[in-house]
Design a protein around this nucleic acid. Sequence first.
DNA 1: GAGTGTG
DNA 2: CACACTCAACGCCGG
DNA 3: CCGGCG
Length: 488
Amino acid sequence: MEADEARIDRLCEEREAWIFELAWDGHRVTVARVDDDVRIVSADGRDWSATFPALVRALCALPTSPLVMEGHLCALDESGRPSFDALRRCVSDPKHGPVVLAAWDVFVVGADDLGAQPLEARRARLATILAAASPSLLLSESLDGDPRALLGRLRAIGVRGLVARPRASLGPAATSPLQWWCLSTDAQKPVRWDRSLSPAASVTNRDKVLYPRDGLTKADVVAYYAHVAPVLLPYLRDRGVVAQRWPDGIDAFTWYQHRPPPRAPDYVRGFSFDGDRRLLLEDREALLWMVNQAALTFHGWTSRTRSVHEPDWAILDLDPGEATRWEQTIEVALAVRRLLELLDLPSVPKTSGKKGLHVLVPLAPGHDMASAQSLARHVASLVARLAPDVVCLSAEPEERRGRLYLDHQQGYPGKTLVLPYALRDLDGAPVSTPLAWDEVTPRLDPGAFTLRTLARRLDRVGDLARPLLGPGVSIAAALARLSRSSAP
DNA sequence: GAGTGTG
DNA sequence: CACACTCAACGCCGG
DNA sequence: CCGGCG
């Protein structure tokens, strides 16, 4: 907000150097036309031409080709204002409409590449091109006057904001986003440019049975995730996720979806890692769309996309063997907890949803994978030394001999952990459920937390894993103590 | 689960 | 129209 | 380089 005030002051001072326009409440697209071939493409590369045939026809009717313009797809609501919701209605149902393109820039006109010309000159060309165009292609007019006064007038008529671009700026705005500013008319509500346009997910094959012994259907699974979405989504925000899918139910083939599916709606997001696209499910729509793809289990990265090499959890994964009794699993968990307490480290236990338990330490920003790994390995090896007959640090069956595998392996970005509130592929539809430490006793029954029972538990105890979303703690002191007192 | 291709 | 087919992961570790 | 593992 203060930043906004400073910007307005600067814009008022330098107002001759800027062009002001509406922040159109629509969806930003680039339109490229070569003869009769017209593409309407959003920033994420999605092609919307088939969705808006009338606009394609209007673009084809222009006398100019080739042509590359940029602008916003817009639809008007009942009161005549551009409205994103109205636009979304047009996408799911072509009866609504019309949709217009509010063009604000042009880069290619016939043989002319305007990339090296200043915005002011490009807009002059744009005005000429659009002068005789269909009414569905309109110029985003520049607005004159004092920016502060403009903002006030826009606020009064319910427009969301004002865009300022330097008259002299070169090249496509998309390639230099810092060259333009957007001022919101509502200080509480910054203008968002990344809203998705795809129609909301619908549930297909509602009656398909995914848990055969329980008769639980896709509709049941969707209803479950819809209910837990408010507590689950904070763990998905800005965190890579791997969706494990069972299109024919838990007895049949499964696979792990690491990437955004090619034809997913645009609210299913991705991020780049190591030159690959990886999956992000950051809102309710995206989560439920993926659930409709028969995703039952969600595995989360241990780090955020903004800092993939800095885990925000250190993890001890208690994976019981065939020879492990439940009381032993509990004992190991409590030993892990006691060690962490001695090190002044908080921890959150959760069921894996199967036979195991996860213990997580929320980490402050700035830790690398190696430190998280080091903490987990130190704790694991101390526990293994206390109970060598019960605990094993290796996953190898030969060495393990049925003992509990205390997994401390977490040394790279992309390694995942079953997220809190994820369903598992076992009869009863169990859920990986965050616990209070005083629930971690031999009487704990992880099978009691299921698709059917979790809503009531959430009402009663809330989200016990919340500390994992907090600021986290530093483990530097703990690591120092551990390396002083013992071998790794 | 969904899109594409084939008889 | 029905059916067949195809596609949808990654990286560690130890051997 | 492979298979096992999660």
